[in-house]
Amino acid sequence: MDYSQDKIVLKAESLKIHYHTQKGYVRAVDGIDLVLKKGETIGIVGESGCGKSTFGQGILKLLPAKTKYEGKLSVGKIDIIPLNEKEMKKVRGKVVGMIFQDPMTSLNPIIKVEKLFYETLREHEPGISFDAARERAARILEKVGIEPERMREYPFQFSGGMRQRVMIALALVLNPDIVIADEPTTSLDVIVQAQILELLDELRRSYDTSVILITHDLGVVAQMADKIAVMYAGQMVEQNVKNKIYYEPKHPYTKLLLKSIPNTNPEDLQLNFIPGSPPSLLNVPERCRFASRCPFRMDICEKEPPVFGIDGGQVKCWLYR
């Protein structure tokens, strides 16, 4: 696809993604709006179970067969929701790449790295030869800091950080318009984390790729994101540019989330936390979903708040009515 500068590459409008279970539908993503522009990085943050990974995998329709989609979800001019599995295969990898949480379970341990690249390229370029695929793989592996000779090895022969570099290379080898990075630094030590994030950001600029960075680590999005979207209980409760979120947060959940980050001041050893638990996404209350944990709760919070535009961003809270 050919996008002009600032062109929208992904747009979600009132998007709902509900899992089918024997007890009913789990409202994992429940009415979110998001816009991603060319070359932009959006960080999606929130507690475990808030719907971050469901949103990311939902873009590629990698969820169970009975998952219900509502609203609108478009990548460029492609309307994703009506597409069947055969049509989605043309989108995965070529239009939207994915870096999964755990490369050890995402990379087939009994297939050599060179064949992983060959299968990825052949899916979208059926006529490509094995030698041509190896040549393409060698170029992208060099860019992520892996010697091309190591293509003949198996994933289990690589360290955790090197496996993640292979995953990044696989996600970028087809030069997609969007890369979804789902917890790309989970289980890596802090030094390797920094290297992976620096590499990912460098490649994003080099390929002019848009990135959706899904994480619970606010330090990670501070390093990479242009904008941040905060998710809670299946909804996006606040969106704005990075500095506004960090220095002028609006939603009570965002404020408490930032306060819960351990600080390095030896005179302040207090560990802050958010009391209570998120609501069950099987039986979501028809009110503000953060109300039971919110220190600013009011009577009006018994009604679900709309999204208010404020300070160049959006916030889903009655405090700004």
Results as ranks from 00 to 15, higher is better:
42 I>H: 01
306 P>R: 06
256 L>M: 15
141 L>T: 05
234 G>V: 00
207 Y>L: 11
168 I>E: 08
118 Y>Q: 06
230 V>Y: 00
215 T>S: 12
297 R>H: 09
292 S>I: 03
29 V>G: 10
65 A>R: 15
84 N>K: 12
306 P>K: 09
20 H>S: 15
282 L>Y: 14
92 R>I: 11
249 P>E: 04
293 R>H: 14
121 L>D: 04
142 E>V: 02
6 D>Y: 12
300 I>E: 13
265 N>H: 07
138 A>N: 02
281 L>Y: 01
225 A>D: 02
281 L>F: 02
120 T>E: 05
31 G>E: 03
4 S>G: 15
18 H>T: 03
158 F>V: 05
150 R>G: 06
91 V>Y: 10
100 F>T: 05
119 E>F: 11
299 D>W: 02
22 Q>H: 14
82 P>F: 08
260 S>W: 11
189 D>E: 12
110 I>G: 02
110 I>Q: 10
108 N>M: 04
214 I>M: 12
106 S>P: 02
45 V>I: 12
41 T>K: 12
4 S>R: 14
310 I>E: 11
93 G>V: 02
192 V>T: 15
190 V>A: 13
143 K>F: 03
102 D>R: 04
144 V>M: 11
17 I>G: 04
205 R>G: 14
218 L>N: 06
300 I>T: 11
70 E>H: 10
170 L>D: 04
19 Y>A: 07
214 I>E: 06
96 V>K: 05
271 L>F: 10
305 P>F: 01
149 E>V: 12
72 K>Q: 15
245 I>H: 01
190 V>N: 10
229 A>E: 07
312 G>C: 09
118 Y>V: 01
188 L>G: 07
256 L>P: 01
237 V>F: 02
200 L>W: 05
53 S>L: 00
272 N>G: 08
171 A>E: 12
242 K>N: 09
195 Q>F: 09
207 Y>I: 07
317 C>G: 05
155 P>I: 05
30 D>H: 06
114 E>R: 15
9 V>H: 00
9 V>R: 04
34 L>T: 07
311 D>F: 06
288 C>H: 10
149 E>S: 13
249 P>R: 05
217 D>I: 04
214 I>G: 03
87 E>F: 08
174 L>I: 07
317 C>H: 03
269 L>Y: 07
173 V>W: 09
223 Q>I: 03
108 N>F: 02
104 M>V: 11
234 G>I: 00
129 S>N: 05
116 L>T: 04
269 L>I: 14
185 T>G: 13
53 S>P: 02
313 G>H: 03
20 H>L: 14
